[in-house]
């Protein structure tokens, strides 16, 4: 499959702590790639480096073959991808409608009517038509997730980065968020890079799994290949994550 995102030799350290020590990763087009790994191993740091929220020390990140310039990204210059934050990062003072419309109003030359049509259409797809005029504080956790997802998808990005999208949700809601990602991926056809601790539930929606350990990607393959994976450390990690018991 053709790669939409290509990462080569990405390094990032904080003082003496080498968090990323030469990460190589390719994310295929129209596929969901999930990064798994222990807490604090650097999964979110990797995502933030890709999004331009953190400057890597070395390495190359290319989106659609074009290298991402960190300086440009940090000024808000890159937007062919979207980022869905762990805690949704919705603007409290804006309604659900305005939160979703924000990237269209601020980064495109679309007319107000076109913006309204696009936002209404996506609100319908995420089944939030009735919540358009409500503020994030008036919405349930699941509804907030859907607003955040709608905002991430409204610009029709090539790639969506999901940073632990199910944090703080109960098992039922976790499942529905994964279902939502799988469902909308089908409908919108975006590529996704997901960071998650929810093993094995997340494998249901993943085309590829990447295991980040000691600053590098030590396993990359399809979820089915995990069963055959004899590498001791990964097997140990999966056992600790109850993979054997849950699958």
């Amino acid at each position: 499959m053709e790669a939409i995102l290509s990462i080569q030799g990405l390094k990032k350290h904080f003082g003496d702590n080498k968090v990323l020590d030469g990460v190589d990763l390719e994310v295929s087009k129209a596929a969901v790639t999930t990064i798994i790994g222990k807490s604090g191993i650097g999964k979110s740091v990797l995502l933030k480096c890709i999004a331009g929220l953190m400057a890597p020390d070395a390495g190359r990140i290319a989106l659609n073959g074009q290298p991402i310039s960190w300086e440009r990204a940090s000024d808000g210059g890159t937007h062919c991808f979207s980022y869905m934050f762990q805690n949704n990062a919705l603007f409290d003072s804006l309604t659900a409608f305005d939160n979703i419309a924000l990237p269209l109003r601020e980064t495109t030359r679309m007319k107000a009517k076109e913006v309204q049509e696009r936002v209404e259409s996506i609100l319908e797809k995420v089944e939030l038509e009735d919540a358009a005029g409500r503020y994030p504080g008036e919405l349930s956790g699941g509804m907030q997730k859907r607003v955040a997802l709608a905002r991430a998808l409204v610009t029709k990005p090539d790639l969506v980065l999901f940073d632990e999208p199910t944090t703080g949700l109960d098992p039922e809601r976790k499942f529905s968020v994964f279902e939502m990602i799988a469902d909308y991926r089908e409908r919108f056809g975006f590529s996704a890079l997901l960071v998650s601790h929810d093993i094995p539930e997340v494998f249901e929606v993943s085309d590829h799994v990447a295991w980040l350990d000691e600053g590098r990607i030590k396993f990359f393959g399809e979820p089915d290949q995990l069963n055959a994976e004899a590498e001791t450390a990964l097997a140990g990690f999966l056992n600790k994550a109850n993979y054997g018991r849950k699958k």
Partner: peptide
């Protein structure tokens, strides 16, 4: 703290200008 500033950046909006 709520990552709204980061969210603006990832949307392609200059957070300082906005």
């Amino acid at each position: 703290n709520d990552e709204q500033v980061d969210a603006l950046q990832t949307m392609g909006i200059d957070p300082r200008g906005y």
